[in-house]
Write a protein that binds this DNA or RNA. Structure first.
Length: 108
DNA sequence: CTCTTGACTGAGG
DNA sequence: GCCTCAGCCAAGA
């Protein structure tokens, strides 16, 4: 119980379903939640995902840029986590983005 | 209720 | 491909 907001919980669930070594975009999650216009709201939910079992480091914007890295404990933490999963990151930009991209609306 | 901010996205030049 | 503008949704003051 105690759901702060159903919308947030939905975002967390999808983020948790992201396979290891893969990433997705805010819009992809929003689309999967039947709210393609709520991409910013998804990012907002990720901001509150701290302390939860949500791999928010696997969620980036549509360009594959680590726009949310500043919200982690360290500026390099997000990139470190991604590289730890075998994802190459260069200057906040995920390399081979479309290869590591995981779309919940299609894969799920 | 109104205004502001934000881990976004798409369209236009 | 890059830069700029506008639209959208959710939470907080």
């Amino acid at each position: 119980m105690s759901e702060s907001s159903n919308f947030f919980d939905k975002c967390y669930e999808v983020a948790r379903q992201i396979p290891y070594g893969r990433v997705t975009s805010y819009g992809a999650i929003a689309t999967y939640l039947a709210a393609p216009r709520s991409a910013r709201a998804v990012g907002y939910a990720m901001t509150a995902s701290h302390g939860k079992d949500v791999p928010a480091h696997r969620v980036v914007n549509r360009k594959g840029l680590l726009t949310g890295k500043h919200h982690f404990d360290g500026i390099n933490l997000m990139q470190q986590l991604l590289e730890n999963e075998g994802i190459q990151v260069k200057d906040n930009q995920i390399q081979n983005f479309e290869s590591v991209f995981w779309d919940p609306a299609k894969e799920l």
